[in-house]
Structure formats: structure tokens, C-alpha cells
Amino acid sequence: MSDNEQLPVWEVFMQQKNGGPHQHVGNVHAADAEIALQNARDVYARRGGNGSIWVVPLETIYASGSDDEAPFFDPSDDKAYRHPNFYRVPKAVKNL
């Protein structure tokens, strides 16, 4: 038996309904991807109605941390021209 008898961690992403995005719901522990998927189904989809499930090995996820959040997200904050209300057009014009 390996040192960690709780087995490796897989993060679980679930599509709540067909056509929607996959969202993180939690994790499962399993020896391989196949069993991780089965565990994820049993743990997070007991009431059905789910589109699909992804399981991702924890160590392959690289996330931004909030310590570097300011510099990390800053550049896009001052780009107001990326939003439609930045642009001025006559009010009377429709369907623009």
C-alpha cells in the first residue's frame, strides 16, 4: 500500500445542465481517472440531471493567488473601451 492510503486527489468539475459551463464542485480521492470519475458521480451527482463531469489531477492545476491578485488582474481594469457603454452614439438610434 502507498504511504497515503487515502489515494491521490482529483478535482471535480461538473456541468450542471446541458450546454452550460463546467464548474468546480469539490474533489474525490482515487487511484486512477476511471475510478475518480465513478466516485465523482456517486459523490456529486446523486440526484442526476447533470450534463457531464471532468476529473483533473490536483497537481496539474495552477491557480492565481490573491497575494498577486492586484497586479494579476489590474491591466484589464482600466480598459473601459472593452465595454459597450464606453462608446457614444445618438440615443434615438435603435438596435445598435
Binding site: 500500500m1 492510503e5 489515494l7 482515487a30 487511484a31
Partner: peptide
């Protein structure tokens, strides 16, 4: 339940 964990690790290793 330990035999289940052991079996799943052995299976994963074999597949790998």
C-alpha cells in the same frame, strides 16, 4: 475496506 483500496491501486499501476 482496505482490500478495495489496495486493489484499486494495483489496478491503476497495471494499467499505467
Amino acid at each position: 475496506g482496505s482490500w478495495v483500496r489496495e486493489a484499486s491501486v494495483a489496478y491503476a499501476k497495471k494499467k499505467q
